[in-house]
Simulated assay, not measured.
Amino acid sequence: MRAVVTVIGKDTVGILAKVSTKCAELNANVEEVTQSVLQELFAMIMVVDISKLNSDFATLSDSLTALGDEMGVKVHVMHEDIFNCMHHI
């Protein structure tokens, strides 16, 4: 099982490091990352393996959302199944 994590906000030092550290604390393995900085806007998409989480999915989502609030960025976590259903034609 995987999840898609998106991060959007003003670019600051350490966004990728903090988000990936929080994932590691919850045993979510980062499989792929893409990020861009356009002027001062930071945008990142991560695909994380959640099959070995040491908590439930809601805890991962709530933890990353709270981390985003602390950093002043918007973090959204979506289960891969929901993502696939939303983007299936």
Rank of each mutant, 00 (worst) to 15 (best):
M1Q: 11
M1D: 13
A3R: 10
A3D: 12
V4D: 02
V5A: 04
T6Y: 11
V7N: 09
G9L: 02
I15S: 09
I15L: 15
I15H: 11
L16G: 13
L16D: 04
A17N: 14
A17H: 12
A17F: 09
K18P: 05
V19T: 10
S20R: 06
C23N: 08
C23H: 06
C23A: 08
A24Q: 06
A24C: 05
A24R: 09
E25W: 00
L26C: 04
A28I: 05
V30T: 07
V30C: 03
E31R: 02
E31H: 01
E31M: 04
E32N: 13
E32G: 00
E32D: 15
V33I: 15
V33H: 06
V33S: 13
V33L: 12
T34E: 12
Q35N: 12
S36V: 14
S36Y: 12
V37N: 11
V37Y: 03
V37R: 13
Q39N: 13
L41E: 13
F42I: 06
F42G: 07
A43E: 13
A43W: 06
A43F: 14
A43N: 15
M44R: 02
V47A: 04
V47T: 10
V48F: 04
D49I: 09
D49M: 07
I50E: 10
S51K: 12
K52D: 12
K52R: 11
S55L: 00
S55R: 01
S55D: 07
D56R: 05
A58M: 14
T59F: 06
T59P: 06
T59V: 15
T59Y: 04
S63Y: 03
L64C: 06
L64Q: 06
L64G: 10
T65R: 12
L67I: 06
G68I: 09
D69G: 13
D69S: 15
E70I: 02
E70V: 09
E70S: 09
E70H: 03
V73M: 03
V73A: 03
V73I: 01
K74G: 00
H76C: 11
H76N: 13
H76R: 14
V77R: 01
M78P: 07
M78D: 11
H79G: 05
D81K: 11
D81L: 01
I82D: 14
F83E: 02
F83H: 02
C85Y: 12
M86K: 03
M86P: 00
H87Y: 14
H87N: 15
I89E: 13
I89F: 11
I89C: 07
